[in-house]
């Protein structure tokens, strides 16, 4: 494992911990899109089908359990926990995420590395993760004052995949036959979707002003 990959996983872990911290301690999910959280739970559920069949390393298994556990518990908090629900902005979190699931499933059935159930599900999770942030970005455009934890959550979530891109470049040049177009293109699309958020987030941080996204 190279430094970019480890940095990417740690950044992803931080984003999840920031969100869990926000929801678990201050019992608030203000500015957080339940749709994106549900999409991420689906991403992990379809990507880690091999968690009990293919053992890669303890690290790999532990991280998979953390991502599965955190994503499902965040969805549970936002759907079931009375106190957390009060801060959920239902009226603005209206992105029809079904419109994302079906095209990703169809695309996975058309373009994949092997036509097996696990491989198609894994490919579906790669495509779905690329677009899973859209409901969250749309909600941020509609949210007047974005609190720091929400901004940090989205920032780290976007940063992790860009670190993975560096990891893929590194592995491409150091490992023979390491070519995975599906992951690379999806990861690039995913990162590009954050481009404008990164711009506004970094400029709000530099000018020391509140983060607001133009509608």
């Amino acid at each position: 494992m190279n430094a970019f990959r480890l940095a990417g996983d740690m950044t992803h872990l931080i984003s999840v911990l920031v969100l869990l911290l926000k929801i678990h301690t201050i019992k608030s999910c203000a500015g957080i899109s339940l749709k994106t959280q549900e999409l991420y739970a689906l991403v992990f559920a379809t990507r880690y089908l091999d968690i009990f069949t293919d053992f890669i390393s303890l690290y790999n298994t532990v991280m998979k359990l953390i991502f599965l556990g955190s994503s499902f518990s965040i969805v549970w908090y936002m759907r079931r926990h009375k106190l957390v629900q009060r801060s959920y902005d239902k009226d603005h979190d209206t992105f029809r995420h079904q419109l994302l699931v079906l095209p990703c499933l169809i695309l996975a059935l058309l373009i994949h590395e092997q036509f097996t159930f696990k491989e198609v599900m894994w490919t579906f999770s790669i495509y779905l993760e690329a677009v899973a942030i859209l409901p969250q970005l749309v909600l941020l455009q509609r949210t007047r004052n974005i609190d720091n934890l929400t901004g940090q959550y989205v920032f780290f979530l976007g940063a992790y995949r860009s670190l993975y891109i560096l990891n893929w470049i590194y592995r491409y040049f150091t490992e023979p036959h390491y070519v995975h177009w599906i992951t690379w293109i999806s990861g690039l699309v995913q990162t590009l979707l954050y481009a404008d958020f990164f711009y506004y987030y970094i400029s709000s941080w530099k000018n020391n002003v509140k983060l607001t996204l133009p509608a």
């Binding site: 890669i56 990891n167 992951t183």
Partner: peptide, 10 residues
């Protein structure tokens, strides 16, 4: 045992 390497990422 040959580990199915290409799925070693998260």
């Amino acid at each position: 045992r040959y580990v199915y390497r290409s799925k070693d990422e998260l």
